[in-house]
Amino acid sequence: MNIFRLTGDLSHLAAIIILLLKIWKSRSCAGISGKSQILFAMVFTTRYLDLLTAYISLYNTSMKIIYIGCSYATVYLIYAKFKATYDGNHDTFRVEFLVVPVGGLSFLVNHDFSPLEILWTFSIYLEAVAILPQLFMISKTGEAETITTHYLFFLGLYRALYLINWVWRFYFEGFFDMIAIVAGVVQTILYCDFFYLYVTKVLKGKKLSLPA
């Protein structure tokens, strides 16, 4: 464990908690893409099946349980409890165009052709593109609530910190996982446009609005 991975995990945890509290407190999921949240629930489910087979540390196990629990709770709030506030008309990204290619790629490019490893690879590739429905929805509505931008900021920051963690681990431990690194680079690049808007607008107290 290094400081970059720890702050990355805490940034990820912050994002998940911010979103869950935003929906719970405001009793509304307006502006939130339910499709992205379903994809994230799929990412955690397929990646953390090793909860049943391997014990690494209390930290590792507890964080995985928290991530899975919060992501399913978020999906539940969006599609069940606060379903009336779900903005389905703007959450129209065709997720099959993400899941099918990612599924195919995880069979073609992986470290080991075993069920757990293919599911892990699938979750890595899926996580790289899981935010697209959310970014697409913001581009369609032309704006995002400020709390939603903070959620996206911490979510994007977490994988950027992981990239530094991988540089650190390669240099000090000789560890590197090409699949995770390439997917992590793609994932972080997808946030660059948002990061620019976040820094130039939200941090200056303005609302995030895209030229519709």
Partner: peptide, 10 residues
């Protein structure tokens, strides 16, 4: 397939 990396990351 190269050897499987230890999955100690989240």
């Amino acid at each position: 397939e190269d050897e499987v990396q230890a999955k100690d990351e989240l």
